[in-house]
Design a protein around this nucleic acid. Structure first.
Lengths: 267, 267
DNA sequence: CACTATTTGTCCGTATGTATG
DNA sequence: TCATACATACGGACAAATAGT
């Protein structure tokens, strides 16, 4: 569990910010295992805080086993990212590939309601004002470890027969097919954002942690918007990987993404 | 300028975290212009802080013109994202498309050195231990507004004739071509991370802000690693957009990214 | 036109975290 | 590591402004 994380986020002072930054650098591989950290004094100067604050952050990192501190020797990075067999997503399909067999993803439905479409959603889906949509918030887990927080909006006439158990068990993609929607094309935008308290709790991360943000808008053959997805992914458990192969001769700077065959089926 | 930002990051307590979270939700469009924020008391409860702390965060947001507060009425979101004509990147090429003509990107060289390859770099490029590489850190700006922080590693035998002025002016892609490298394929991984003090200063954001993180490894025709790029992008000034078109008939859940012709040439 | 509920604005004393030496 | 001085966060109380009844 994220007991330590919870306790730290409850404190939530400067020490936790430094802790988050250092942990981010370690789990990202920027500070690989074996690397020696600068002295506490240098760290204090670099982060603009005092040694005591640096010390508190290092205390937590040491308690989590990420670093090893030895008097006189210095502080070295021991364990890298927990490397919880991160899920890699195929770029084109955005269906996560389960890197290891036997690992399954399940979904947990957090909320479920029919509401008038919020402005950003109705704009993206090109809906008229006041159109009602089904809003579902789900968390997807792999081996009972959450890795994605999904907020979907679907026009209510399409989502009429999406029951709660449907949403908990079936990918929305399949549900749209079942509803007779002819999915045609989609637009995606990838960004980064911070974990707000509610998603932080759902994803079991600290408030203020970095998350991958993906917004996808799906249209049917008639050009009608049928789904709006706002997804947040834990960077330590989810990756967006792609391979680029050069197309054409020298001078033609164009790349072709390699399409990986889809095996999993999740969002 | 980022004067206010600098002052806040100097304070750096809970108030700044709440400020960052709220600002993130506003600039992301999650809280669109015209939306009314919950009362300060509710916000305090939601973020697990006291009302005074919420107040401090709202003070800064109001000072920046993002929200408008009226006693008795409430707090409404006024200005959305600065919408500084965000740069959209073509997915396949990762060359940013300049949305408006006349906008040009320039690069500023922050550091430049020949060093033994760090472990993550030598691993990714499949270099032998101790191989020396050229490390260059650059910031790319559009209309003198920084949007990306680029750290590149290139084996020194390739980078021999990359001068400082070359690096400041020419995209590394072109420099590789000039060096006779036959670029063949590349792997990319997209994630999210937090702004450390050094990149925060370079990108003119607050420490702890969310950044898009992109790691690219380029190989030549012989399978040799020729470039390692670690890029950090400001989410408010850079987007990763893609269009997905469905390939095949119903039931074939495969997508094809649309390749947009490249116009710009930057990293 | 009052009356009420809610919200922002302002002040206080206290507690805790942080900086400094 | 400890002790002291300072900055920040907290919780409460109260006033002023707004909107609806």
């Amino acid at each position: 569990m994220a007991l330590q994380t919870a306790r730290i986020s409850a404190e939530g002072g400067k020490a936790q910010r430094v802790y988050l930054l250092l942990r981010d650098e370690i789990t990202r591989g920027d500070l690989p295992p074996g690397a020696v950290l600068p002295g506490e004094l240098r760290l204090a100067d670099h982060y603009g805080v005092s040694r005591v604050t640096i010390r508190r952050a290092l205390d937590v990192l040491a308690q989590e086993g990420l670093i090893d501190r030895r008097a006189g020797s210095g502080t070295v990075v021991t364990g890298a990212a927990p490397q919880r067999a991160a899920i890699a997503a195929d770029f084109a399909t955005l269906m996560p590939q389960l890197v290891q067999m036997g690992q399954q993803t399940t979904a947990r439905l957090l909320s479920y309601a029919y509401i008038p479409a919020p402005a950003p959603v109705s704009d993206a889906l090109r809906l008229a004002d006041g159109v009602r949509v089904q809003r579902a918030v789900r968390v997807r887990l792999m081996d009972s470890a959450p890795f994605s927080h999904l907020t979907t909006h679907v026009p209510d006439d399409i989502a009429q027969d999406f029951s709660e158990t449907d949403l908990a068990g079936t990918p929305l993609f399949r549900l749209l097919e079942r509803a007779g929607v002819q999915v045609d094309h989609a637009t995606q935008s990838i960004s980064a954002s911070l974990a707000t308290p509610d998603v932080a709790e759902a994803l079991e991360v600290a408030v203020g942690a970095a998350l991958i943000s993906l917004t996808r808008v799906v249209f049917d053959a008639t050009g009608r918007g049928v789904e709006h997805l706002a997804a947040l992914y834990r960077p330590d458990r989810f990756r967006l990987d792609m391979v680029l192969n050069r197309v054409g001769k020298a001078g033609a700077r164009q790349w072709e993404p390699v399409l990986v065959p889809m095996t999993g089926a999740a969002e």
